[in-house]
């Protein structure tokens, strides 16, 4: 039995369609013209530095906040005109643990089921399935306080899925988890995607975004600076290749000068290395000019993108 939507949306309509979202706090635009599109069985990641507007964008989409401008459709429902029906179709896993500490693990799932109408059908059976599939059955009668970080996340995910939503929002789902627990959460997210759930997540873990995302939206100061497939976004914003050479190399000043004259972006210093983003022809020119240097060429990663964004802001 799938953990997510049992009633997938029509193929034509994305499960999330947001357009022109604007949100101001104290006169400052923290979200400025953001548009998102996520289909069933797809993971859309919002990426950006702290304060880029990721969480606020997510909160607008799941209805915690109201946008000052823009439209949001969830599984074909307009969130502004029918917020209650729209809320019935989404599940939310917040960044902080917001499970109810007055209830046991099982009690949490029972209680959150009471916050939805129509009531989730066959709730007891649904809870049993969620407990088993998230590995929570042995903690069912325990208070959530005793759970490890990874299991707390599992409980948060199970809570978000109790009413079989079509769209799942995950706000930094693995922040603070150890590598093993992160991997387990990634596997759960991947399973949910395969079950046909649309998933929108925020993260500033580059490896997480790379591994999980079908589509990526990069935010900076509330605005979208790039959107698309992860590789395409990286190519657009960083370049096809990243050249790495030691900053102590005697030829480094000459490389910097060559890059400046070629109209390339400045080399980025990362610890003891210098990084230079290049396209294919640029790399060929570099090799023709500095072929005898010791350097490394690797594909760009989201870390490069993140550093680039940080540099620009």
């Amino acid at each position: 039995m799938p953990m997510g939507a049992s009633h997938p949306n029509t193929q034509d309509e994305p499960v999330l369609l947001a357009d022109g979202l604007v949100k101001q706090f104290a006169g400052r635009r923290v979200v400025d013209g953001v548009g998102l599109r996520c289909r069933a069985g797809q993971v859309l990641s919002l990426l950006g530095a702290n304060g880029a507007g990721k969480t606020t964008t997510l909160r607008l989409c799941y209805g915690f906040l109201q946008p000052d401008a823009g439209t949001i459709r969830v599984a074909g429902i307009d969130r502004c005109t029918d917020p209650e029906t729209a809320a019935r179709r989404v599940g939310v896993c917040t960044q902080d643990d917001t499970f109810d500490t007055d209830f046991t693990v099982r009690g949490n799932l029972e209680q959150v089921g009471r916050y939805f109408r129509p009531r989730p059908p066959a709730l007891k059976a649904r809870i049993a399935i969620l407990l088993e599939r998230f590995g929570l059955d042995r903690y069912a009668s325990a208070k959530p306080d005793i759970l490890s970080g990874g299991y707390r996340r599992r409980l948060m995910l199970a809570r978000a899925l109790i009413h079989e939503p079509q769209l799942l929002f995950l706000d930094e789902p693995t922040t603070g988890l150890d590598p093993q627990a992160r991997l387990e959460v990634w596997e759960l997210i991947d399973t949910l995607r395969r079950d046909g759930l649309g998933i929108v997540l925020t993260t500033h873990y580059m490896d997480e975004a790379e591994r999980l995302s079908d589509e990526l939206v990069v935010l900076r100061e509330g605005r979208m600076v790039a959107a698309g497939k992860p590789r395409a976004v990286l190519g657009d914003l960083v370049g096809e290749h990243v050249l790495v050479l030691e900053a102590r190399d005697p030829a480094a000043p000459a490389v910097c000068e060559w890059a400046r004259q070629a109209g390339l972006p400045e080399l980025t210093r990362v610890l003891s290395d210098l990084h230079l983003a290049l396209d294919g022809p640029g790399l060929a020119r570099f090799i023709a000019r500095f072929g005898d240097l010791r350097f490394e060429v690797r594909p760009p990663t989201l870390d490069d993108l993140f550093l680039k964004l940080a540099e620009k802001s």
Binding site: R88, T94, F99, T101, V112, F116
Partner: peptide
């Protein structure tokens, strides 16, 4: 402290 409200506000409860 318990963030019970936040947990309720991500459902159909406003």
């Amino acid at each position: 402290y318990q963030k019970t409200w936040e947990g309720q506000l991500v459902t159909q409860v406003r």
